[in-house]
């Protein structure tokens, strides 16, 4: 998950994710992307949410996208013919075209030890259990609505 208030859009997650995946720094093809809009004022961090009911799984024409027992959405490169259906259907626009391997890719959580979390300089990124994410979200919402620490 990402705590958006802590993210300054430095882009280190993006640069190093692409390096790990592609062997060179190619931020536009990273599985996590800091998207700037309206000039310098706005930013959005795009990455796979590993949805409970992922639309990319049903959208994939070749059936190479799947959701494992651990909740992580995974994809096999073999068979992907880069039709882009997953990207079109994903509500977050998370899948990205990898021009070197000619396939679409998304965050694979680095096998359970995400690099982006390790290198984020502000601690905005965290890798947590679903229940903990839900708890933090509810707490944050309550704080925003009612004030105070809880």
């Amino acid at each position: 998950m990402i705590e958006r208030s802590k993210c300054g859009g430095c882009g280190v997650c993006q640069a190093l994710c692409s390096l790990k995946r592609a062997g060179e720094v190619r931020p536009g093809e990273s599985a996590i992307r800091v998207e700037r809009y309206a000039g310098a004022d706005g930013l959005n961090v795009v990455y796979c949410q590993h949805c409970a009911d992922p639309v990319c799984v049903t959208a994939c024409l070749k059936g190479v996208v799947d959701r494992g027992a651990d909740g992580a959405v995974t994809r096999r490169e073999e068979g992907c013919f880069a039709c882009g259906a997953c990207e079109v259907m994903c509500p977050f626009g998370a899948p990205v075209y990898d021009s070197v391997r000619d396939v679409y890719v998304t965050c694979d959580l680095c096998g359970g030890d995400p690099l982006c979390v390790k290198v984020c300089p502000t601690g905005a990124l965290a890798y947590l259990e679903e229940a903990e994410i839900s708890r933090r979200f509810r707490e944050g919402h309550a704080r925003e609505r009612f004030g105070g620490n809880r």
Binding site: K6, G9, C10, A40, D41, G42, C120, T122
Partner: peptide
């Protein structure tokens, strides 16, 4: 580590 005050703040810093 620290919180940022402006965005997009530091780049790779």
């Amino acid at each position: 580590a620290g919180e940022t005050t402006a965005r997009p703040a530091r780049y790779l810093s």
